[in-house]
Write a protein that binds this DNA or RNA. Structure first.
Length: 589
RNA sequence: GGCCCCGUAGCUCAGCUGGAUAGAGCACCGGAUUUCUAAUCCGGCGGUCACAGGUUCGAAUCCUGUCGGGGUCACCA
């Protein structure tokens, strides 16, 4: 059982029970398949709380008209305790209104569960590996990395809340040519630290200032040990030193963003430990590796294209468009080859479900990796890849000009320091992962309704304000959690109050569907909608009908019931923000 | 040329895996402030869901094709 009732699932259960009864009574064929029967929210609240398509889906197999079957289902629904009314609409929908008691019970559930509200057992403890960030250890993170970091992190929280056993993983690309370049770049900074004039950083090396500190640290640790020697002598130790320094940098950035990985996997360890060779040998034995010649891409041909035979993986057998090289011309493994070994390693560690979060520029890589997983796990594993589109950094609507060379590059850390981690995390989720995102440094700090971070935080702060005022009006034991849970919820009858409860009650379903779809941005949208319902109730009480104000000296029982509503709302907001890794704000003066 | 993503209101974008009369914010127009925070709310205006076929009770959503925008295309990661 989940910690809260998913009322759509609950009502679906009721409908299916009625259908089963109809089947045993002979009104429906005994073997009728109910799998297409769904219970969903209505588009328009005027249509009721939930609607089912049962009559439309089953009319044909039952040999009945949708309306006739609907009539029989409605007769059954009238006997369901939670149902206030049910009626046929449109082509055969059954619109269902649930009674207030049912909604009041949901309110009690929220209070009982606290921020654990919405936690589900959907995943049944199944293990899922989510690999994200995996930024190359060659410098500090930029804003685009930050988006992937947030999407991966929140997706992990979300999937965990839906009942899966999640491992957050970072793949360290500490092998290959680029970390050699890093080592050479460090060597320059190291000589600089020892007093040499190194002049301009040559083209092709990393010019960033962040290596200066690493150079100094190396000079302090090792003195002049590597200053004059041959590259062959110092390359490896400097590489290790540089990677360690860069990973420290990245870990600091991640910590500032509130992101923490459980596992760091090293590419070089995988290669060094023979993991790649073993996997390739296995593939060769299965005749999935062969020596062939690739055709150059049609359209534009690369200038330095040379036709040559190379070791290819039969990716086309598993859904890819062409077979993919696993060896470079110098005989070493391609990145793809090591990545295959890495994904098999994850599978062998017990993760049949894998999710990778990548930048959109790696889009062309998805099919081959999925083909690889299919081949390596013999269909036992599944890989979903979330591609993150670019982040356009703006200030007051103008693009922020960035150049690595000119040293005007804005790092993720600078943005976090400027606007705060909570704002960064929230804004990163205000678009689907595969849509481009504008991040305006000024706009995200504005206190207005078109800033979703503020809008949601403000609704929570307003709650806290009400609860603070209540403390002056009541003795502590009159409005503690116990008292709120015993409050007379039946007093909450206004449409705006009930509307708020109904959206709160949709939280468990939101968690489950967003987790299943691997779409963390839905949480941000949900919280915005939930906040809107609260702001609406607030203003309704203060303007249209002051009897709807939360605090009333004259009617304390009613006030306690309303405080319970306020508390429950704040709890669901907090629960959602917890998934997003954002701290709820209690005051915004 | 192949592959992937995208095309929804003047602008920025949602649309819960196929549901009803397609939604929200901004902008524009008009309202609400003796207050628990008006940093908010309510109403109005605004659409050929790029286009053409197809699948079915039913399509913004799935399939095919066309047009337009972006990304990517051995030996980088």
């Amino acid at each position: 059982m989940s910690i809260a009732l998913n009322h759509f699932e609950y009502m679906r259960g009721c409908v299916v029970e009625i259908l089963s009864d109809l089947a045993s009574a002979g009104s429906l064929p005994v073997e009728t398949d109910f799998s297409r029967v769904s219970v969903e929210p209505t588009r328009d609240p005027k249509h009721g709380d939930v609607a089912t398509n049962a009559a439309m889906v089953l009319a044909k197999p039952a040999g009945l008209k949708p309306h006739d079957l609907a009539g029989q289902i409605i007769a059954g629904l009238d006997n369901v305790e939670a149902v206030q009314s049910a009626e046929i609409a449109g082509p055969g929908f059954i619109n269902i209104v649930l009674n207030n008691d049912f909604w009041h019970q949901r309110l009690g559930e929220v209070l009982a569960a606290g921020t654990a509200y919405g936690t589900s057992t959907l995943g049944q403890g199944k293990r899922v590996n989510i690999e994200y960030v995996s930024a190359n250890p060659t410098g500090p993170m930029h804003v685009g990395h930050g988006r992937g970091a947030v999407i991966g992190d929140v997706l992990a929280n979300l999937v965990a809340k839906a009942g899966y056993n999640v491992t957050k993983e970072y793949y360290v690309n500490d092998a290959g040519a680029q970390v050699d370049v890093l080592a050479r770049s460090l060597h320059l900074r190291y000589r600089e630290a020892l007093g040499e004039d190194i002049g301009e950083i040559p083209e092709g090396l990393y010019p960033g200032d962040y290596l200066i500190a690493a150079g100094k640290a190396l000079a302090e640790r090792d003195g002049k040990k590597w200053q004059t020697g041959d590259e062959a002598e110092w390359l490896e130790p400097l590489r290790d030193f540089a990677i360690e320094a860069m990973m420290d940098l990245i870990r600091e950035d991640l910590a500032a963003l509130g992101v923490e990985h459980g596992v760091f996997s090293s590419e070089s360890e995988l290669v060094g430990g023979g993991g790649v060779d073993a996997v390739m040998k296995t593939l060769e034995d299965r005749d999935l590796i062969y020596t062939g010649v690739l055709e150059p891409p049609k359209g534009k041909k690369p200038d330095d294209w040379e036709e040559r035979p190379q070791a290819l993986f039969r990716a086309t057998q598993f859904g890819d468009d062409v077979d993919r090289p696993v060896k470079k011309s110098d005989g070493s493994w391609t990145y793809f080859a090591t990545d295959m070994a890495y994904h098999l390693d994850k599978f062998n560690r017990g993760f049949a479900d894998m999710i990778d979060v990548w930048g959109a520029d790696h889009g062309g890589y998805v099919k081959r990796m999925q083909a690889a997983v299919k081949a390596l796990t013999e269909e036992g594993g599944a890989l979903d890849v979330k591609l993150c589109q670019m982040v356009n950094l703006l200030d007051k609507g103008e693009p922020v000009k960035m150049s690595k060379r000119a040293g005007t590059f804005v790092t993720l850390r600078e943005v976090i320091d400027q606007v705060g981690k909570d704002v960064v995390r929230f804004i990163m989720l205000t678009r689907k992962n595969d849509a481009q995102l504008d991040f305006d440094l000024t706009k995200v700090m504005e206190q207005s309704r078109d800033n979703p971070v503020f809008y949601v935080q403000y609704s929570h702060a307003r709650c806290c304000s009400v609860l603070r005022h209540a403390e002056e009006m009541f003795e502590a034991n009159e409005i503690n959690m116990e008292a709120m849970q015993k409050a007379d919820f039946k007093r909450l009858t206004d449409s705006a109050e009930l509307a708020l409860i109904k959206i709160m009650a949709a939280w468990p379903q939101t968690v489950e569907s967003a987790a299943e779809a691997h779409e963390p941005h839905r949480i941000a949208y949900y919280l915005h909608d939930l906040s809107a319902a609260f702001h609406a109730l607030w203003t309704k009480g203060s303007k249209e009908d002051t009897s709807l104000r939360f605090l009333s000296e004259e009617d304390k029982p009613l006030t306690v019931a309303r405080l319970a509503l306020v508390k429950a709302f704040a709890t669901v907001i907090a629960s959602g923000l917890e998934v997003m890794g954002v701290e709820p704000v209690e005051e915004m003066r």
